[in-house]
């Protein structure tokens, strides 16, 4: 690759300042996150915040944080937010949205939180077609407690609570959340995306935007599942973690649109 060096004059103090084109979104605080190197949460937080800024809804958005690695999401989003009990974020978001239908309400949940202990809450929020947006990060393990098996753990994957590898005959099969929710009439948008490559990350952000758009249009429940990396608990390097998503997780969790309401427009 060749590098082009632009010849240009140094700006003088009186010249128009350079336009800052990459900066912290207003919907993020300037607090450094506690996430591990190579974790996808930080980048996903940023994309959610960018979307909130771009849609111009920061002043009327309320976030609901989960229990799990993203438990402090409320510190990182520069929004009104609250912290739910483990798995209960969709119920809490339901309460918020029902009494403030003019506000934009989203939950940010991991796979243990949403797909295991919060299975009933997410299922029924989707069934009711709650006008909320769910950002669902799937890294196939319980991260915060140290890498135990989650309902999303893929077959054969070694975790601290499936040390011989997940045996699906005794420990059950991986759960596919957007595929499960997509057939429900109340669901307007149910897709899966992945963080394993830059081109894929662009699609993640587009999907997050569509999910918020669904709520703004009032067409129903929206959820984006995002395959994220957990190098710490997968015991691989950050770059190998991206390959792990591509080679191991994608075959089990294909990216795709499982439901896109015809009324949705970008």
């Amino acid at each position: 690759m060749t590098t082009m060096v632009m010849e240009r004059e140094a700006p003088t103090l009186t010249a128009t300042p350079w336009e800052l084109v990459y900066q912290r979104p207003a919907a993020l605080t300037d607090l450094p996150t506690h996430y591990c190197p190579g974790c996808s949460h930080g980048a996903i937080h940023r994309m959610v915040a960018e979307v909130i800024d771009e849609l111009g809804i920061r002043e009327r958005t309320i976030g609901v944080a989960p229990v799990g690695c993203a438990v402090f999401a409320y510190k990182y989003f520069n929004l009104d937010s609250c912290e739910a009990a483990h798995g209960r974020a969709p119920a809490m978001a339901t309460g918020l949205k029902r009494v403030r239908p003019d506000r934009i309400v989203f939950t940010y949940q991991g796979d243990g939180d949403l797909a295991s202990i919060g299975g009933n809450e997410i299922l029924h929020a989707a069934l009711r077609g709650e006008q909320i947006t769910v950002i669902f990060v799937n890294n196939a393990v319980y991260g915060m407690t140290g890498g135990q098996m989650a309902p999303t753990t893929i077959a054969g994957m070694k975790t601290t609570s499936s040390p011989m590898g997940r045996d699906v005959l005794t420990q059950g099969y991986p759960i596919h959340i957007p595929e499960l929710l997509a057939p429900m009439p109340g669901v307007a948008y149910a897709v899966r995306r992945s963080m394993h490559a830059v081109a894929e990350m662009r699609k993640v952000k587009k999907a997050i935007r569509m999910a918020f758009q669904a709520q703004l249009q009032g067409v129903g429940f929206s959820i984006v599942e995002i395959l994220g990396a957990c190098p710490t608990n997968w015991h691989v390097s950050p770059t190998d973690a991206l390959d792990y998503i591509r080679d191991r997780m994608l075959p089990e969790y294909p990216v795709g649109d499982f439901k896109v309401d015809a009324r949705l427009r970008d």
Partner: peptide, 13 residues
């Protein structure tokens, strides 16, 4: 469980 967490959310608002 759903009911009390909905109350929690509405109360937060």
């Amino acid at each position: 469980i759903g009911a009390i967490n909905m109350v929690y959310g509405a109360a937060c608002a």
